[in-house]
Design a protein around this nucleic acid. Structure first.
Lengths: 209, 209
DNA sequence: CGGCGGCCTTGACTTGAGTCAAGGCCTGGT
DNA sequence: ACCAGGCCTTGACTCAAGTCAAGGCCGCCG
């Protein structure tokens, strides 16, 4: 918030963007500070812009009629979200909520479209980003439809361990309830499976969180 | 195949592209004719280009270790597929196979990237396309994790009926086995559910296919 | 300091949907 | 014309995972 232009320059998506265009962005960007659990947008809201996480974490999720939630993404600083609504010209297809006290930067739809027209590399960045997300979604779909919960859990833990260069020890920064929602299950089931893995000696677990 | 350039001009993705650029495309495009059930690419293959369906239909799907399949997309003439691998710079994340006797046009990766750099509107088209796919995937994920099979079936039928302006009568052009795979279930289950709906008078069903 | 509300765990029960197996029907090929 | 193979359906069984309920463990706020 102190220096918006600097923050914008640090967003990977806007990397390499000429200074004057970054300045243009800064001029129209709006920062929004959020309390923990504050709603950013709801499914069905008009999507007249997109967001980048500035601080804290944001979860994107779907809700079933009876309240069960499926987490689609967890985003941290520098990661954009809500772009789908901008390009597809539709309403937001999911909910967005701050996981912690957080801040997001909002860019109006039109500004982004203008910028892309002037800057093909930005378009390529965006295409790359969305491709990665599509890829992750195909993974999630595969898991949901073709694997059982223990398999999904294992895949997720291995994925996390992969991020840490294969360390065989890792710390989760989300609650188990959230992990359950990310895996498409419920806390009770997750708890049972973890207990079983520990009993089989395949896993050790420690502490809360 | 008789007139490749003309076909390329008719692809929605390339709509509005200057003639000379369409000609460039035609010069590097390769047409591939396919038998029914012929594999186009497999998960893990190098993704050095993308495809557009020219005739027939193509299914994109994931396979579980024990052979169960989850259909991700069904594409018909004019629809592109395999773009994710081009932009994310990764291997194909799923399998592609011809559903009927079909033909596809292949465009090498580099050509597409060049074209985008010269043509921002093409980039916007692509971004729109991928956004729509992301949106459909969020829907599928929601269905898989938050709804039971009857609900998914109902949603799918309503979706199809929506395409036909809400007609309350519709014809499926895929087998029930394929529909099952699209819904993330198996033919037996689908068959039972349809039978139940018919018995409850919520639905009538007719003929094979 | 005490109590309330999250979060996690465990147990008992229920159920949706998958597996396995068998039979009917239709189609295309020899 | 007939057989083989694919697709669909039905029945009996099994099982993974969800619901419901209860209890323990903090940590925060009044």
């Amino acid at each position: 918030m102190i220096n918006l232009a600097e923050q914008i320059g640090a967003i990977p998506l806007f990397e390499g963007l000429p200074e004057d265009q970054q300045a243009d962005l800064a001029a129209i960007a709006q920062v929004k500070n959020l309390e923990r659990n504050e709603v950013i947008f709801s499914e069905g809201d008009e999507g007249n812009g997109f967001y980048v996480v500035s601080a804290g974490r944001v979860k994107i999720f779907k809700l079933s009629p009876d309240g069960k939630e499926q987490i689609l993404h967890l985003f941290g600083p520098g990661e954009p979200f809500g772009e789908v609504a901008v390009f597809a010209g539709v309403r937001f297809p999911a909910y967005a909520e701050a996981l912690d006290k957080a801040a997001v930067i909002f860019f109006p739809r039109r500004a982004l479209l203008d910028l892309i027209r002037r800057n093909p590399d930005l378009a390529l960045n965006l295409l790359g980003l969305m491709s990665m997300r599509l890829r992750r979604f195909t993974h999630l779909i595969e898991d949901l439809s073709l694997k059982e919960v223990p398999g999904r859990l294992a895949a997720h833990l291995l994925f996390l361990s992969g991020l840490k260069n294969g360390s065989d020890e890792l710390e989760l920064d989300i609650t188990k309830t959230q992990l359950a929602s990310l895996l498409g299950t419920i806390p009770e089931t997750l708890s049972r499976i973890l207990a079983k893995l520990v009993k089989q000696g395949l896993l050790k677990s420690e502490g809360p969180a």
